[in-house]
Computed example of a mutant assay.
Amino acid sequence: MKKVGLYFGTFNPIHIGHMVIANHMAEFSELDEIWFVVTPQSPFKVKKTLLENHHRYQLVLEATKDFPKLKPSKIEFDLPQPNYTINTLVHLGEKYTDEYQFCLIMGEDNLKGFHKWKNYEVILENYELYVYPRISEGTVAHRFEGHPKIHKVEAPIMEISSTFIRNEHKKGKNISPMLPYNVWKYMDEMNFYR
């Protein structure tokens, strides 16, 4: 049974920071594959700067096509909105009963707020978490320190943000080194974020 890490995000756009972390997880942890789960919308993000779902999925597809262990997923596009991670996990578990064991990938910043997630106890009971380091305020709740289901992976700290990329691109700055080449090409051709 393949162990799959689910890396959720709006990926607006996907950048080399996302790629470095996902590849690090695929190469240096027990995970066999990483699925970039493109989220259709987040209650915490302003919609107007969000590219349409199919375009963001396409950007992830462009970024991952040369990396067999990294895959795009649009599984959440078909789920009722607003959607919660627990619903996606249950849905995937039902769809791929015997093929995959699913795990969650998250930044340390998300782990700090994990106790506020819907059904976080159920998630922790049934799924492993793979956490990568992030520079952020606050501390991880004591109950998550040394938890047998939470694995801290010493991935490189990537301080690149999609917001920064969008804003600077709009100003005419050259942000192409921060993006996988295919992503930059597609973004440029489609005139995104201008």
Rank of each mutant, 00 (worst) to 15 (best):
V38D: 05
V38S: 02
T39H: 01
T39E: 06
P40Q: 04
Q41I: 09
Q41C: 09
S42Q: 04
S42P: 09
S42L: 08
P43M: 07
K45Q: 04
K45F: 00
K45M: 00
V46L: 10
V46F: 03
K47C: 01
K48T: 12
K48D: 12
K48E: 14
K48I: 08
K48H: 13
L50K: 09
L50S: 10
L51Y: 03
E52H: 10
E52P: 13
E52D: 15
E52M: 11
N53A: 13
N53H: 03
N53V: 07
N53K: 01
H54P: 12
H54C: 15
H54K: 15
H55V: 13
H55E: 15
R56K: 09
R56C: 07
R56E: 07
R56Q: 05
R56V: 04
Q58H: 14
L59C: 05
V60L: 13
V60N: 08
V60W: 08
V60R: 06
L61K: 15
E62F: 01
E62R: 00
T64P: 04
K65T: 08
K65L: 02
D66R: 02
D66P: 05
D66H: 08
D66F: 07
F67N: 15
P68I: 08
P68N: 12
K69E: 13
K69R: 15
L70S: 05
L70M: 08
K71L: 14
K71Q: 15
I75E: 00
E76Q: 01
E76W: 02
F77C: 06
F77P: 03
F77L: 14
D78Q: 02
D78I: 03
D78S: 03
L79A: 00
L79K: 00
L79T: 00
L79C: 01
L79G: 04
Q81N: 03
Q81S: 13
Q81L: 04
Q81D: 03
P82R: 03
P82V: 04
N83L: 14
N83G: 11
N83C: 15
Y84A: 09
Y84V: 11
Y84C: 10
I86G: 02
N87L: 05
N87E: 06
T88I: 06
T88P: 08
T88F: 04
L89W: 06
L89D: 10
V90I: 15
H91I: 03
H91Y: 11
L92V: 03
L92F: 06
G93N: 10
G93F: 06
G93Q: 12
G93A: 07
E94V: 05
E94C: 13
E94I: 07
Y96K: 09
Y96M: 09
Y96N: 11
E99S: 13
Y100L: 06
F102K: 00
F102N: 00
C103E: 09
L104T: 00
I105M: 10
I105G: 02
M106N: 01
M106Q: 01
M106I: 02
E108Q: 15
E108N: 09
N110W: 07
L111V: 05
L111D: 09
L111H: 09
L111P: 14
G113Y: 07
F114R: 02
F114M: 01
F114G: 08
K116G: 06
K116H: 08
W117C: 04
W117E: 10
K118D: 13
K118W: 05
K118F: 11
E121I: 15
V122K: 10
V122C: 07
V122D: 08
V122Y: 05
I123V: 14
I123F: 04
